[in-house]
Design a protein around this nucleic acid. Sequence first.
DNA 1: GGTTTTTTTATGGTATTTTATGGTTTTTGA
DNA 2: TCAAAAACCATAAAATACCATAAAAAAACC
Lengths: 149, 149
Amino acid sequence: MSLFLSSYENRLDTKGRVSVPASFRASVSNEKFAGVVLFRSFTNNCIEGMTMSRMEQMAAATDKMGVFDSELDDLTAMLFADARQLAFDVTGRIIIPSDMLAHAGITDSAIFVGRGNSFQIWNPDAFRAAQEKSLNNLRAARPNLKIGE
Amino acid sequence: MSLFLSSYENRLDTKGRVSVPASFRASVSNEKFAGVVLFRSFTNNCIEGMTMSRMEQMAAATDKMGVFDSELDDLTAMLFADARQLAFDVTGRIIIPSDMLAHAGITDSAIFVGRGNSFQIWNPDAFRAAQEKSLNNLRAARPNLKIGE
DNA sequence: GGTTTTTTTATGGTATTTTATGGTTTTTGA
DNA sequence: TCAAAAACCATAAAATACCATAAAAAAACC
């Protein structure tokens, strides 16, 4: 799977359709499902997005936990119950459900934000503010990311 | 097997018929049994649903427990004795048995809730309350789900 | 290097199909 | 024979596919 990189701001039309950035579509192009899976973020006021195969990996990961585990309940409730699979139309657009738009405070335009193996969709202004905050957090405390094991 | 994602609220008609959401039917479409298996949840006031092949996986998983385990007795009683297989009619509807409706408190409408490899059927109001609770739980403590090994 | 041409991408509107849902008729089986 | 279940038919609403154009990016050209 190729990575979701960079940020792209696109307009919503009257029917709520919005183009998924071409470069994101390219990242999905060799998936069997030609579209994306979205769900409301429970950490930010934004929408989380990923490929279907990534979602299937999530399901496989939950299978390794106990089937009747109560912690798992909450997680699968938000991950799967809230998720929507949205196919691209011919020109590469999706219609973001209105409850998700409300959650993210998106009205007339949305910004698609690359997150590596996934992406997010934000209200453009809210994103810029959050981005500023992330920068300050990182300056205050350098993260401990290791590439070699 | 494709995943059960998202939530769909559908009405029951006077005869108790309710449409299984089209996307759920799609998840079942390459199964040999064109329908679903339901049983009463013993963790929530709802109905558990899955494909026949998932049910077979469950049977295989119970084999890993001791044959004369007393927990297994109760589990298999609910899983297999209580389970009903319901075929879709031409338009994709099923009739949910009345004891299951009573268990879930479903009267005039039901919400089909994706859970990844399975799904649930809830009273819509009860589901929304439970969902709110899950969201709060997750916000309080971020779950630790790892996809890489 | 700058200009023109071509291609890709984003966006707007319309037509078609699918889906949910209500009702009626036929079949089954007790 | 009668009631319950299954099959059949019809329709409105929602979702999806289709077509057409404008804007932007990339490529080709001088």
